[in-house]
Design a protein around this nucleic acid. Structure first.
Lengths: 218, 218
DNA sequence: GTACAATTCAAACGAACGTTTGATTCAAGC
DNA sequence: GCTTGAATCAAACGTTCGTTTGAATTGTAC
């Protein structure tokens, strides 16, 4: 068989796929290279040969999908700001631009992006700073630009209040995409964790309400 | 007040304290019994002698504080429902009852409850089901009662929508209490993660806005 | 076919882990 | 003083881990 494309080798891809699934299932520490390479159908040494170390394999797992997702986010934000007037895009558009790509991109993956989403959602609060740094490195520009955009859409909010609310927004999203197991354990099958579009709609509603909540005590 | 429970030995307390700090810092897998017992100033075998296994030690770390917190939550919910009319407590009261005890109780701990909060916030989405089960076991009754209370305070919401919004609420809280490292990494020192009361006020505002957000895209 | 580099493979290495063991220490109770 | 049971201790056990090694295999250009 001949490969027409100079794509990364089958071995490399298999390792990334296996690592993604097992890290989502058991965490970085719980996913041993032996389990990963066995699942990938490769030799144990292949992981170190192709990626150097387990850390770098985990880094590659995140970087593989996060970059396209963020590129899409930036593209949508550009478009929204171009189409909006001089006051900038309205709140709901920003929220949708922020939340949407994570889900929309995941849909194109074989597993619907569940594994990757779970890893990302967890990476933000994980003790091991390694994944956190990878995540933040990729997100740095997006954070900066969304800060400015939200600030323009919510001019009545004090800067500190806005940053906290963005933090809560990220938390609601991260916890949701990371915690399907938890959700099913708590609510049984009352909630359909596979209806990604419905979840996005609900998330957007919730976030818009929270972000634009009145300050209350005058 | 007389204490009905016999006070645990110094060794047991030291082990719980050391385990709490190290698990918060490095995670369950990353906190070795050797590191924990060394920090506690005890022998390595003391952990297994007093707790049986590392798992049971971790379980004990969570159960130690979570039970009083939930008891306080139930007490506040009882009081709120007793004082409220027949329509039940209003939304903000419920949210405050849900979020408050976590912070208020932590304030009395030596470290302000930061370590414990971090562990709990992470436990919900952790790959290892062990901590999740402990958490859910302790939270089961609270979840059931708050479901009913929120349902009464937000009668216009479809049941599924309400459950999702509660999920987002939990996510915002969990991510916030688990992610001080992340918050500081993203926002620098612009946000004061030590101002617990301020964070609670902001959380309550955000959650009330999100929970009561209008459904309609008209 | 030969040479050469990239890749795969079985096997082993050293380190770190949770747990167990058996001796030792300690504080009452008699 | 002796006994008894709880608690502590140093030491070791067996396992699993990430990584390394050196030989075998494969693909490819000459």
């Amino acid at each position: 068989m001949s490969d027409p494309m100079p794509e990364p080798s089958d071995t490399k891809q298999s390792l990334l796929d296996a690592a993604e699934a097992l890290i989502a299932e058991r965490g970085v520490a719980g996913a041993s290279l032996r389990a990963i390479t066995t699942r990938a159908g490769t030799n144990l040494a292949a992981a170190n040969y192709h990626f150097g170390s387990k850390q770098d394999l985990a880094r590659a797992v995140i970087a593989r999908h996060l970059r396209p997702i963020n590129a899409e986010r930036m593209r949508l934000l550009d478009k929204a700001e171009r189409e909006a007037g001089e006051h900038g895009p309205k709140l709901e558009t920003l929220v949708r631009t922020f939340v949407g790509p994570v889900v929309r991109f995941g849909r194109e993956l074989p597993d619907g992006g569940r594994h990757f989403a779970q890893i990302c959602g967890r990476a933000m609060t994980q003790p091991d700073p390694m994944l956190r740094e990878v995540l933040l490195g990729e997100l740095a520009e997006a954070i900066r630009r969304f800060k400015a955009a939200f600030s323009r859409a919510l001019p009545e909010l004090a800067p500190e209040e806005l940053l906290w609310r963005m933090q809560f927004m990220v938390g609601a999203m991260a916890h949701t995409i990371a915690g399907s197991q938890m959700i099913e354990a708590v609510h049984g099958d009352a909630l359909d964790t596979r209806d990604l579009d419905g979840i996005v709609e609900r998330l957007v509603r919730f976030m818009c309400g929270g972000l634009s909540a009145p300050m209350g005590d005058a």
